[in-house]
Design a protein around this nucleic acid. Structure first.
Length: 611
RNA sequence: GCGCCCGUAGCUCAGCUGGAUAGAGCGAAUGCCUCCGGAGCAUUAGGUCGGGAGUUCGAAUCUCUCCGGGCGCACCA
């Protein structure tokens, strides 16, 4: 059989097939990164931080997972749009607005001068800005609601509710203040993520979903298809409701309404478990708005956002939704497949949206709707204490403590990045004595980002990360810097050897001698293993996408680096005397380098020239 | 009460569609720079894969059940 050197019966029901190593090696040498051209238009939504406070480590996991997955999809040939959904009209934004207007008792005009001034002031010291200011204010406001007598508390809750309604409604002073704050915080989020090489194409906002009447269009479709029905009995009387995913009266079988389901409840019994979409007061719930938004994503709504440019990256523009957009704009939405990077706690509402699409007859879209879920980043009790948080005896016994913006408990993204850069900079200073200031800082940042991204990617999605500075600040063992170090050492070989990886590979491939000889024998088994793994890239990429699991690639890159490090120590390349064997060893290093750089690139980790 | 996730070495985790002797990293112990960078390499110690039953020639992996831990189950967003 082609490609195989032989077969043998091995017992226990096994047949060992032996690869023709020379042939396999030729395949690896010539494996160019030719992406298959998948025509699908894929939409990935990630980050989606409430624009009322600084980003924290939980948001970092979301953004890094999402961004990496985008890179994987693009490498596989998909056309991908990256969206960051902005809930600028929700309670969280309302809470900081309450903080400014009612706790700090500022007038809208005062807020208008204070926000930009504070942003500049805070940022003067480093990467901090209005998002940091709001972090504290949000926590204070949350406490403020709980303080005072019963009457006072009720009054404050009423202020909160009124503020929320005014923001949702728009066209008033409170809404203008909310817009000002949320936009300023949003800018900070984009800047924070840019430090990690994370960019977006489009920022759809809740305010436009409301004002452009997305819900109204969706409501018609939902009523027409019978997914929503008007409840006349029970606790949900007066609401438009839908059956929940997995319930016995679910709307796929029962599309015309809550009919007789032969159950003991009888034909008139209300489905108490149904999900309310339109409240009895006529307002729409979160899931309702989300259904409308997802109809838009698939191009099924019959309406579109207006678009304005918002944020400029070196090589492209990020657009934001607007009520009255510009005439010339790129087209977003209308995807054939979507991925929503949202943490596992939201799987119920996500399932509801999918359920609604399916009920409306959009089975194909429902099948291509992926809730890319992941578990939260929590803090170890020790870490919470380090942050100055008072940990109760009960909490101290727990494996981890949940991050809480409301309580102001968490590690801010920029703080962590700063800490990482400071730590890598100290290492760089100790090693790169010849480099200048700018060069050192650049290297330190590359390593810091490599460490952070790898840290967030090495865990599989459904493992809770119990965050601890000790682990996150580690640069040894299974870390990003370990892999980057392998790259640096490989590059040094070629630099000192006066050749290039491309030349070494070409020379090796052109030797028509029996390549098999290089890959046989005890001392060459590790080299063969390295080549074998190097040839697995496209398979790993495929698995990552099929399972929506970037951690597979992180693992692959690490194992490759590990095998290279082993090879590096066992075989001294530049002093090899046999020229043909030297070429072979150089080609091995070239393949390792090519695959390491390629893998790191998809993980969003740079390959430094020195470190 | 219902649903989802987790339980593998002292600690943190891999183990993907069931396959041969269960793997990494950290931590511990011991070695390794006249030689391409020690953010490295090698060796050693450390496991009844939470318990039990079932399916199978074969189970960490599939099914059931029990025990621990976490997260969801609003006319909040």
């Amino acid at each position: 059989m082609d490609g195989f050197a032989g077969f043998e019966v091995a017992g226990a029901g096994y047949i060992n097939a032996r690869l023709d190593r020379a042939l396999a090696v030729q395949n690896v040498v010539h494996a160019e990164g030719r992406p298959p051209s998948a025509q699908d238009h894929v939409l990935v939504e990630h980050t989606s931080i409430n624009p009322n406070k600084a980003a924290h480590i939980g948001h970092l996991r979301n953004a890094i997972l999402g961004d990496t997955f985008v890179r994987l999809l693009r490498a596989a040939g998909f056309q991908v749009d990256v969206q960051n959904y902005i809930d600028n009209t929700g309670v969280q934004v309302a809470d900081v607005v309450v903080g400014f207007l009612h706790l700090l008792k500022l007038s809208p005009d005062e807020v208008r001068t204070l926000v930009p001034a504070t942003d500049r002031l805070f940022r003067g010291g480093g990467q901090k800005g209005i998002d940091y200011y709001c972090w504290d204010l949000y926590a204070r406001t949350s406490q403020w609601y709980e303080q005072g007598g019963e009457e006072e508390k009720a009054a404050r809750k009423q202020i909160r509710l009124d503020t929320l309604h005014q923001i949702e409604q728009g066209n008033n002073e409170t809404a203008a203040v909310a817009e000002l704050i949320s936009t300023a915080v949003l800018r900070r989020h984009l800047e924070t993520m840019q430090r990690l090489d994370i960019e977006y194409d489009f920022l759809p906002r809740e305010s436009e979903i409301l004002h452009l009447k997305f819900w109204e269009a969706a409501f018609e479709q939902l009523k027409r298809t019978g997914v929503l029905y008007f409840e006349t009995e029970g606790k949900n009387k007066g609401c438009w409701v839908m059956s929940r995913a997995g319930s016995s009266t679910d709307s796929v079988q029962n599309a015309s309404g809550p009919e007789d389901d032969d159950g003991p409840k009888g034909p008139e019994a209300a489905d108490e478990d149904a999900k309310v979409i339109v409240r009895s007061n006529g307002t729409v719930t979160y899931v309702g708005k989300d259904i409308a938004y997802h109809l838009w994503k698939f191009g099924l709504l019959g309406r579109d956002f207006g678009y304005k440019p918002f944020f400029q990256y070196p090589d492209h523009t990020c657009w934001i939704s607007a009520e009255h957009g510009e005439a010339d704009h790129p087209h977003f939405g209308g995807a054939t497949a979507i991925y929503n990077v949202i943490d596992a706690r939201q799987s119920d509402p996500q399932a509801n949206v999918i359920q609604a699409l399916r009920g409306m007859g959009y089975t194909d879209q429902a099948d291509h709707y992926t809730h890319f879920s992941y578990e939260m980043v929590a803090l170890t009790p020790r870490c919470a204490e380090e942050l100055g948080y008072r940990v109760s005896d009960e909490d101290r016994e727990k494996p981890y403590i949940e991050v809480s913006g409301r309580k102001g408990l968490g590690v801010k993204a920029d703080d962590l990045i700063d800490k990482l850069i400071a730590a890598t900079r100290a290492e760089v200073d100790a090693r790169q004595t010849g480099s200048d200031e700018a060069e050192r800082q650049k290297i330190a940042a590359q390593i810091a980002i490599g460490a952070l991204r790898y840290f967030m990617l090495k865990y599989t999605r459904n493992s809770v990360i119990a965050f601890d500075f000790k682990d996150a600040l580690s640069f040894e063992g299974e870390t990003g810097p370990y892999i980057q170090y392998a790259v640096v050492r490989t590059r040094n070989i070629f630099r000192k050897g006066g050749t290039t990886p491309e030349a070494a590979l070409a020379e090796f491939a052109s030797q028509h001698a029996n390549l098999n000889a290089f890959f046989t024998g005890e001392e060459n088994e590790d080299i063969w293993a390295l080549w074998l793994r190097a040839g697995r890239f496209s398979l790993v990429l495929e698995q990552c996408i099929a399972a929506s699991e970037p951690a597979f690639l992180a693992k692959h890159a690490f194992q490759l680096a590990q095998e290279f490090a082993n090879f590096y120590h066992r075989h001294h390349i530049l002093t090899e005397e046999d020229p043909r064997r030297k070429t072979f060893l150089l080609a091995t290093a070239a393949v390792a380098l090519r695959e390491l750089v390629r893998s790191l690139d998809l993980l969003g980790i740079e390959s430094p020239e020195a470190m």
